[in-house]
Design a protein around this nucleic acid. Structure first.
Length: 383
DNA sequence: CTCTTAATAT
DNA sequence: CATATTAAGA
């Protein structure tokens, strides 16, 4: 009954959309091998259909996974946000979304949604009291708010940022943050005396560096760099650092952060394998797997179904995001599958690696309340 | 006290 | 550069 043309058109659009998505996820083919494969299949199927349709029935639905329903073509199509095609603002978040929709899965992504959330602004040490040891008054940092880190901030969050500080941190965003920071703690007061410097001093050798906190901005840059480099698994700390162009950031810091990131990134495939597992091989992917890089927001958004939220993030991202996108990993094997399900072993006496939900750091309510917040609000800005 | 995360050691 | 270990902070 429906017009063929109509169907055709839709199929075409769908196809295009899929291809678009495929491009996006290609970068993460390691992390989402299945995803990529599925999309590819879908595309092929669609194309085939397109080619055959003209001559005759469109009945053959080889298309993707859709069951044999008559309306072969795109049932899912409707779920897919059409808007995209034109520009790429977001990244793969969309892709996840589309997949998810297919399944209609109900995965809650709450837990994983963002470890990132924890990271706030640059909090360097929680502000030592001025009188205590080193007077670090508001020295340098001012550079620019747009920058990535803010030296000492303690409060954060949207709520009320203290206006007092000269440095207004501003949510900034939009746009390119081309300007990046500079100063930073390096301030060695070099010579002279007075300034507020920090302690340099001879501490023999170990004095642990004050923790550098990864602000959302910083993390954003980090992710950004990661993307340009083709994923967390191929990127190397040095490259990342260079790409981030954050002054004062050391290789080690990046390395450490990368380590953590990878740790979290690796897929903790859920125990879907149990004997009579209800769900077959669907594309549930996202739900069960730790979403790779920059898609936490997506996840949150996805679940709800709203597209909006995510958008915000793009501001920063957008400018640079796509251009590079160079990477094709040479490595042939994408043989990563979903398996391996390990429970944490926690402290035994030594080696302990973890994995598990990340409670947020910054806010630290730690309460169940979190559930409520999740979408909308907070997360958005980052990336 | 536990857990996450950054620093440092290997 | 990758991992492992140690430790700070919450």
């Amino acid at each position: 009954m429906m017009n063929y043309t109509d169907n055709l058109q839709r199929c075409k659009e769908y196809c295009e959309a899929l291809e678009e998505e495929r491009k996006k996820i290609q970068v993460f083919h390691r992390e989402l091998p299945l995803c990529l494969q599925l999309v590819t299949q879908a595309i092929e199927a669609c194309k085939q259909q397109l080619s055959t349709t003209s001559t005759e029935n469109y009945g053959q639905s080889e298309c993707s996974e859709q069951t044999s329903s008559d309306g072969p073509v795109i049932e899912e199509y409707k779920f897919i946000p059409i808007k995209r095609t034109s520009s790429f603002d977001e990244e793969e978040q969309l892709s996840n979304k589309s997949k998810k929709n297919n399944v209609g899965n109900e995965e809650k992504s709450t837990k994983k949604s963002d470890w990132l959330k924890s990271v706030q602004l640059w909090n360097e040490s929680p502000d030592r009291s001025p009188d205590k040891d080193s007077p670090r008054k508001g020295v340098v940092e001012v550079k620019k708010n747009g920058g990535a880190f803010h030296p000492f901030t303690k409060e954060n969050k949207i709520s009320g940022i203290s206006p007092q500080t000269a440095t207004v941190r501003v949510s900034n965003s939009t746009a390119t943050s081309s300007t990046v920071e500079t100063a930073n703690a390096t301030t060695s007061t070099g010579g002279g005396g007075g300034g507020g410097g920090r302690k340099e001093e001879k501490e023999g050798q170990s004095q642990r560096k004050p923790r550098r906190c990864w602000s959302p901005e910083l993390h954003r840059r980090f992710l950004h760099a990661l993307q340009q480099l083709g994923g967390a698994h191929v990127a190397t700390p040095k490259q990342i650092r260079e790409l981030m162009k954050v002054d004062g950031l050391t290789n080690d810091e990046v390395k450490s952060h990368l380590q953590k990131y990878r740790l979290h990134t690796r897929r903790p495939s859920p125990a879907m394998a149990s004997t009579g597992n209800p769900h077959p091989p669907q594309f549930v992917v996202v739900g069960g797997i730790w979403v790779p890089p920059p898609e936490y927001a997506a996840v949150a958004a996805t679940t709800t179904g709203e597209t909006t939220t995510i958008a915000s993030g793009n501001g920063i991202y957008a400018p640079v995001a796509t251009p590079a996108l160079p990477v094709q990993k040479p490595s042939p094997s994408g043989s990563l599958t979903i398996s391996n399900n390990k429970q944490q072993q926690k402290q035994s006496h030594s080696s302990n690696s973890e994995e598990r939900s990340h409670s947020d750091n910054g806010v630290h309510s730690n309460s169940p309340a979190t559930s409520s917040s999740t979408h909308t609000t907070t997360a958005s800005p980052a990336f």
